[in-house]
Amino acid sequence: MAKLKVAVFASGNGSNFQALADGARDGRIDADIRLLVCDKPSAPVIKRAEAAGIETYVIRPREYPSREACEREILIELKRRGVELVVLAGYMRIVTPVLVDAYYGRMINVHPSLLPAFPGLNGIGQALAYGVKVTGATVHFVDGGLDSGPIIAQEALAVEPGDTEETLAARIHPIEHRLLLEVVQHFAEGRIRLNGRQVTIES
């Protein structure tokens, strides 16, 4: 079976990128990570990609007249590499219809909360500040809104007394990694179906 051609977009440390790269290398997912797209030239995720032998495409958004112009150039790079699935993994930019329309149903994001609760920046801090007893992680389709696309997979996690952002993040990140690998493998196997906001995974 041909491997699923994947591009990962990331802006920061890149632990989710690392999980995907390791999973592809170890054969836990039938995926070929073709490209890292990064909007921060000094982001640690770039070194992770270099160590994994994965090509990096660094964009500098301020050099473009608009978000759309920047994404049109990204789209050219994705098409050139035959990318079939785009994974946003800590990518700190809202994508425009340029990419959403080209990859709708084939672009996913991972978020550290049980959406639709606490979208946007610092979902973990938002959950703690609100005082919830349960939070978790979500993998969802990208629709151009703020973490608003149809939900593919979620896993809940209890908030413990005395939790800080750091302690809660340390327990949420492994859930994000596991969910991402599971969902990417479902894509590779052609098992995911999207109908409106309803997502089913065929057995």
Score class of each variant (00 low, 15 high):
22 D>E: 15
17 F>N: 07
169 A>Y: 05
193 R>T: 06
123 G>D: 06
149 G>T: 10
54 I>A: 05
73 E>H: 13
53 G>T: 08
143 D>V: 12
14 G>M: 06
92 M>I: 10
199 V>Q: 05
27 G>N: 12
60 R>K: 15
31 A>V: 13
62 R>W: 14
155 E>M: 04
70 C>Y: 01
27 G>Y: 12
21 A>Q: 08
79 K>I: 14
28 R>H: 15
109 N>Q: 06
124 I>G: 01
67 R>V: 12
24 A>R: 09
26 D>I: 12
34 R>N: 10
158 A>L: 12
173 H>Y: 15
194 L>R: 13
160 E>P: 00
171 R>Y: 01
68 E>P: 07
17 F>T: 05
108 I>P: 05
8 V>R: 06
90 G>S: 11
146 L>W: 08
37 V>S: 11
9 F>N: 01
56 T>C: 10
25 R>L: 14
136 G>S: 09
179 L>R: 00
49 A>M: 13
184 V>G: 02
57 Y>N: 12
133 K>G: 11
80 R>H: 12
92 M>K: 07
126 Q>N: 09
35 L>M: 14
87 V>L: 12
17 F>R: 03
62 R>H: 15
46 I>H: 04
119 P>M: 07
191 R>H: 04
116 P>N: 08
195 N>Q: 15
79 K>F: 08
48 R>S: 02
117 A>Y: 13
170 A>V: 03
140 H>N: 12
145 G>C: 09
65 P>Y: 11
103 Y>L: 05
76 I>L: 14
40 K>G: 06
54 I>V: 14
55 E>V: 10
93 R>I: 08
46 I>E: 09
185 Q>P: 01
6 V>W: 10
32 D>M: 13
41 P>I: 14
45 V>W: 09
127 A>V: 09
99 L>V: 02
44 P>G: 08
41 P>G: 08
16 N>S: 09
109 N>D: 02
58 V>Q: 15
6 V>R: 04
185 Q>H: 05
19 A>D: 02
86 V>T: 04
142 V>L: 11
79 K>P: 02
150 P>F: 03
111 H>E: 04
17 F>A: 11
84 E>C: 10
158 A>M: 11
194 L>H: 07
166 E>G: 02
174 P>Y: 05
195 N>A: 15
75 L>M: 01
46 I>S: 02
29 I>D: 06
161 P>Q: 02
123 G>F: 04
81 R>V: 05
9 F>Q: 07
118 F>P: 03
84 E>Y: 03
22 D>N: 13
78 L>D: 00
162 G>S: 04
111 H>A: 07
80 R>K: 15
185 Q>R: 13
141 F>D: 02
12 G>L: 04
126 Q>W: 09
147 D>M: 13
133 K>S: 15
182 E>F: 05
132 V>M: 09
147 D>S: 07
174 P>F: 08
43 A>C: 08
96 T>D: 10
108 I>S: 02
104 Y>W: 13
150 P>R: 06
125 G>Q: 07
151 I>C: 00
83 V>A: 06
12 G>E: 03
45 V>C: 14
